[in-house]
Nucleic acid binder design. Structure first.
Length: 543
RNA sequence: GCGCCCGUAGCUCAGCUGGAUAGAGCGAUAGCCUUCUAAGCUAUUGGCCGCAGGUUCGAGUCCUGCCGGGCGCGCCA
């Protein structure tokens, strides 16, 4: 809605010189008009002149018809406040109705191919609550980017080549031996979980008793493949039931097998970015923004975790992505500088990789914290969580807060059917809109025609304005990679909708009012639905 | 010790590339409503935006130092 005015202001700004940035925003106080700019103050700052005088010059240069303006005034220290032509709001609302499920989508002027990598959990156990937050965030960021016109690939990276998976295979082999009635011990640093006993029993049943008689190397290799398949299937199932699907599952082992790890090392060496010391090979990371240099190849000849990770990111770059976003747990933040240093050293564009961090989640039941201990058994898996509170509540909750703030997940509250539960509150607001249309005996898409703002009151108009802010909210959330802006918007919209529901009767009003309010109910229902869909949350017509 | 994140109302948190008088929910207090779905509305209460400087016409927002909390600082992943 503000784009034409912004363009016109930009044109005027250029006539005063081309290096001026300005904002155009909705003032908090409605008496300040529909939109306000600080352009005159920015120009005055540069020229050391009087902002109010500058504002007059800006206004004189402005073409009111180009921006559909009904009023312009100078206010405060030099703001220019604009009032839009009365039918601007009605026009935008009609666009909401005609765009329907597409409302809120936009086409960026710079569409990019973007890879969003998230969850990427080790295949050594079930996904926990923290992975859930990463899943909701990554999927939310991906959806936002799609909504604004980017081409997005959702990717999951499996660390299937490290020592963790080797320990897991050894542990499983030990369980197989035990199942076959032979003495065997879980190795040092191995996995003691019950699920390995079950996996061992299954394996013996499927492969026959002779499986336990295999030679150690062969048995281990098959245990490794078996446990990897089991864990991957388990994680994929958990994510699929959570509504998250990946386009690409990338494997660390394949990065090795395809020679990419060796190639990455060679490339770093050829570029003179490495040196040898104490029998190890080091990366000169400190020359590229890291605090210190980092080991690439240990003195025992094996690689550190960093190397396949570098190779993997090069692989993503080679696949033609203009931009990559990684979602990591906040406990890995110390890893960012060395990754960025390596990519910079290899000549990737600045800013190519963006790392979004998710803070850990504290789970609370009632008032009591649920301790996350694998040993004690009251460990809450992601599946446990959403089977108890529902996928909708879980996804909404994970996205309610900025990802870099700590999140308190209150299971009792997320389960409750009350207005204290934000998810319920939002879904209820939409269900009420559906209810109005249902009582009117009208399908939403059959409520058509023009809205008449003249017959409506302040609550109606406030709600309409909020609805028409949805597209800019999506754009901003996408630009900042911040899905929580959508939940915050939904919460505001729900509050306004519940208020409207009580003050503004629809059915039984005069035909003109009833018609316009039915249109409003349809529009509100649409925006709620679009926003919830974007976040992967259902939008039921009845609660 | 060094680095990163956080610090906003009693609690949980928003706060738009620096903008006009810092907001919401919950809680508390008072009243209203009893409904197109019961979880609704209004008012009141509540803030040295961690502290101290600085930059700016203007700072919750940017810079510096300090305080408090979390996390990370391995030839682990």
């Amino acid at each position: 809605m503000s784009e034409r005015l912004r363009a016109e202001l930009a044109r005027v700004a250029r006539t005063f010189g081309d290096d001026v940035t300005f904002t155009l925003e909705r003032p908090r106080d409605p008496s300040h008009g529909d939109l306000a700019t600080n352009l005159a103050m920015q120009l005055a700052r540069r020229d050391r002149s009087n902002p109010r005088v500058m504002a007059e010059r800006v206004i004189a240069a402005l073409d009111p018809s180009a921006a559909m303006l009904a009023g312009v005034e100078i206010a405060g220290p030099g703001f220019i406040n604009f009032r839009l032509a009365a039918d601007t709001l009605a026009q935008e609302f009609q666009r909401l109705l005609s765009d329907g499920p597409q409302y809120g989508r936009s086409r960026t002027s710079e569409p990019r191919r973007i890879n969003v990598e998230f969850v990427s959990a080790n295949p050594t156990g079930p996904l926990h609550v923290g992975h859930g937050r990463g899943a909701a965030l990554g999927d939310g960021i991906a959806a936002l980017l799609e909504w604004t016109g980017h081409e997005v690939t959702r990717e999951f990276y499996v660390n299937d080549a490290g020592v963790q998976i080797a320990r897991l295979a050894e542990s499983l082999w030990a369980r197989v031996q035990q199942s076959a009635g032979r003495p065997a011990e879980i190795p040092e640093g191995g996995y003691h979980g019950e699920y390995l006993k079950e996996a061992a029993a299954e394996l013996l049943q499927r492969e026959g008793e002779g499986f336990a008689d295999l030679e150690f190397a062969e048995g281990l290799a098959r245990c490794r493949a078996a446990i990897l398949a089991i864990q991957r299937a388990e994680q994929d199932g958990t994510l699929a039931d959570f509504g998250v699907r990946f386009d690409v599952i990338a494997s660390e082992q394949e990065v090795y097998d395809h020679g990419e790890v060796a190639a990455a090392i060679a490339r770093l060496q050829d570029a003179g970015l490495t040196f040898e010391e104490d029998g190890a090979l080091w990366l000169r990371a400190s020359a590229f923004g890291d605090d210190r240099d980092r080991v690439l190849r240990k003195s025992d000849g094996s690689y550190t975790y960093l190397v396949p990770d570098i190779a993997y990111h090069l692989n993503k770059f080679r696949r033609g992505f203009d931009h990559a976003i990684d979602v990591w747990g906040a406990d890995h933040h110390g890893y960012i500088p060395r990754m960025q240093a390596a990519l910079k050293a290899l000549g990737l564009p600045d800013g190519w990789l963006d790392v979004a961090l998710v803070q850990l989640v504290r789970v609370v039941r009632g008032g009591e914290e649920v301790k996350m201990s694998k040993r004690s058994g009251d460990f809450v898996t992601l599946r446990d969580l959403y089977e108890e509170v529902g996928v909708d509540a879980a996804r909404y909750w994970f996205l309610m807060r900025r990802s870099d703030s700590h999140l308190v997940f209150d299971i009792e509250l997320a389960k409750s059917r009350s207005d204290e539960n934000p998810v319920f509150y939002v879904q209820m607001a939409r269900a009420r809109m559906s209810g109005i249309l249902r009582n009117a005996g009208r399908a939403p898409e059959d409520v058509t025609g023009a809205i008449d703002l003249g017959v409506l009151g302040a609550d109606d108009l406030g709600l309409i304005k909020k609805l028409t802010q949805f597209p800019e909210t999506v754009e901003r959330a996408a630009r900042e990679h911040e899905p929580h802006r959508i939940t915050t918007y939904l919460d505001d919209l729900a509050r306004m909708s519940h208020g409207w529901y009580h003050t503004s009767r629809v059915l039984g009003e005069s035909p003109a009012v009833e018609h316009s309010r039915l249109l409003l109910a349809r529009g509100a229902r649409q925006v709620f639905g679009n926003a919830l869909t974007l976040l992967g949350i259902s939008a039921p017509d009845r609660m």
